[in-house]
């Protein structure tokens, strides 16, 4: 699914958090959203997943206005994985994944079994099938994130929005998660903090600062010493790692 973000602005109380953002995600590509804390990444992602309506501009998915859609229709096209999903409820992994079928369900009969195959497939692809009976509260951070990804996949979306999905994960789980996401072939927009990870797994990068897009394009064009200095206020060298053949940001203390 193609996502077109056209001059989108959003704010609270007269303050613009997202300011005239335009970007395009081609079908099946992974777009990394970078920017310092408070640059408006989460707010933009909430607009892109339909949780907030833009004050100006529009988000088009395959040419249709996302915010004009019925909420359930929207949730069958766009799924969101938040950075730190938490609950006090005693849910099994399978029940968490089943939440993803809510936008596909009718009101009656309440709780009718539906989408069994989609649930099984989502658990398999998210690699939580073997955890199906485990309680959410007993899962590790990496397992929780996989369960949330599987829940998002159970929505059978064409677009996946990820808000700092690797934030609480160790290196192994970070790589693992990003590999899984890349392998899905869905149009994906992911806010990321780790510049190396973004460079390695994203087709395009979009850099936000104070709510505006300050750079976008392939990692090699976007990630420069100048950009890191301007946006993060950090002196760094961006090098192509000779062995891994990837961009690598080396910062100075």
């Amino acid at each position: 699914m193609r996502v077109d973000v056209r001059a989108v602005s959003w704010g609270v109380g007269g303050r613009r958090i997202v300011d005239g953002v335009s970007l395009t995600c081609e079908p099946g590509t992974v777009t990394g959203l970078l920017g310092p804390n408070g640059s408006g990444k989460t707010s933009l992602l909430h607009v892109l997943s339909g949780l907030r309506a833009p004050a100006e501009g529009a988000v088009l998915v395959d040419g249709r206005d996302l915010h004009a859609m019925d909420a359930r229709t929207r949730a069958r096209r766009v799924a969101l994985v938040e950075q730190h999903a938490s609950t006090d409820l005693d849910l099994s992994v399978r029940e968490v994944v089943e939440l993803g079928r809510i936008p596909h369900r009718g009101r009656w009969p309440a709780g009718a079994a539906e989408g069994g195959e989609a649930i099984e497939a989502a658990m398999r692809i998210g690699r939580v099938a073997e955890l199906a009976g485990r309680r959410w509260q007993t899962l590790s951070g990496g397992e929780r994130q996989r369960a949330q990804l599987a829940r998002a996949l159970a929505q059978e979306p064409a677009t996946l929005i990820l808000d700092e999905p690797t934030n609480h994960l160790d290196l192994g789980h970070q790589l693992d998660f990003m590999r899984t996401v890349r392998g899905l072939g869905l149009t994906t927009i992911a806010a990321l903090h780790d510049l190396d990870l973004a460079a390695a797994f994203c087709d395009r990068l979009v850099v936000l600062n104070a709510g505006r897009v300050v750079a976008q394009g392939p990692a090699a064009d976007v990630l420069t010493s100048q950009l890191v200095a301007d946006v993060y206020g950090v002196t760094a060298h961006v090098e192509r790692h000779h062995r891994a053949d990837r961009l690598h940001v080396v910062w100075e203390r």
Binding site: R72, A75, A85, I102, P103
Partner: peptide
């Protein structure tokens, strides 16, 4: 939570 509910339609 509520943003999760919102994203589920």
């Amino acid at each position: 939570g509520e943003s999760a509910a919102g994203s589920l339609g």
